[in-house]
Design a protein around this nucleic acid. Structure first.
Length: 304
RNA sequence: CGCGAGGUAGAGCAGCUCGGAAGCUCGCCGGGCUCAUAACCCGGAGGUCACAGGUUCAAAUCCUGUCCUCGCAA
């Protein structure tokens, strides 16, 4: 079975790698356009482009799929697979060949672009992966298979994404086999139970210490890749990559910074938010011990 | 040429304005103290101050160029 793959970020990369290694033949990769990024605003290709090229696969980066329907019609493939492609596929494309999607949530829960972050933000203990038919509506197609995945307390966006992607890959390969055999079965979603996730804005990463330590830690876990949980002290930006609910028996005002030789806390609504890994502007991401060795606090209360 | 910060012991930083013996914290090695610690004391090893030129009696420090890292914006 020849597969045309649609996907852009890391989640898609993991799935694509698995497909390449499988018995199925990937005939091409469609991903988003190169974008100006980083210092100098140089044009940067999505990571997945190098993976595709390293495996000799043609890469298609179309501004609008709608304008390339004829191109797709002439392509030699049997089935399209989407995984975090990042764009809605037009009906004209979906009408050409069947298309299935890998979605990292227990649909109909968490439809949309940020299911993994949302599960972490909400402090969920369980999430999952769903293989479903790609339709015009957002993540509302019939379900082939779904599997629960436990979220461990120390898990963050990156580790959870890896776990979900590898489960998703296994389920996808399973489903592809069944489709090939003609034994696949799919059931409609219960649309009444559907929930939708929000897109993430940069300011969503701001740590407001009037919130609970648990919600702050969840924010760190969810946003570790982007936009990264952060706050300001004395005008300096501090990004937090790893944190936990701290154990510290002292009184302090909300937003006050408390440090010992090897530990760094910020008082939050209901306790101490302990920073384990962070970064100041211009510096590298550091474990808290290294950070404390050199960083000079310009204030001992976070900026509002 | 989008804006900005930085490269100094294994790690994180200070020193640079105003040129004149390489310093702090952590780690490491050795010793000591304590019922105990989110601890403490003594000693030790470890650095071509990113690289290359230039100015000077003298450069981590001033000037020029190169390489690398990071924050912002998009």
């Amino acid at each position: 079975m020849k597969i045309l793959f649609f996907g852009t970020p890391r989640f898609a990369e993991i799935v694509l790698q698995g497909l390449i290694d499988s018995e199925f033949k990937v005939v091409g990769v469609v991903c988003q356009n190169d974008k100006p990024a980083g210092r100098g605003n140089k044009l940067v290709s999505p990571h997945i482009v190098s993976l595709a090229k390293a495996n000799g696969l043609p890469v298609y980066q179309f501004e609008k799929l709608k304008d390339h329907i004829e191109d797709f019609k002439t392509m030699d493939y049997d089935l399209a697979v989407t995984a975090s492609y990042g764009k809605i596929l037009p009906k004209a494309f979906l009408d050409i060949k069947p298309c299935i999607n890998v979605h990292p949530s227990l649909l109909p829960k968490y439809r949309g672009a940020t299911p993994i972050q949302t599960a972490l933000l909400n402090g969920d203990k369980v999430t999952g992966v769903t293989i479903m038919k790609t339709e015009v509506g957002m993540d509302d197609g019939d379900i082939f298979v779904q599997e629960k995945v436990e979220i461990l307390p120390e898990e963050d966006y990156v580790s959870l994404l890896d776990k979900l992607a590898s489960v998703g890959l296994r389920l996808l390969l399973d489903t592809l086999k069944k489709i090939e055999d003609g034994t696949s079965v799919r059931t409609p979603q219960n649309h009444d139970e559907a929930t939708f996730v929000k897109l993430i804005q940069k300011e969503d990463g701001f740590l407001d210490f009037s919130q609970t330590t648990e919600s702050l830690v969840n924010k760190v876990r969810a946003f570790v890749e982007s936009p990264v949980a952060h706050f300001y002290v004395g005008g300096d930006l501090i990004k937090v990559y790893k944190a936990q609910i701290g154990q510290f028996a002292e009184q302090a005002e909300v937003g006050q910074i408390v440090k010992t030789k090897k530990k760094l806390f910020v008082k939050a609504q209901d306790g101490f938010f302990e920073i384990l890994r962070c970064q100041a502007s211009g510096g590298k991401v550091l474990n808290v011990v290294d950070f404390l060795n050199g960083y000079h606090f310009k204030a001992m209360v976070v900026d509002r």
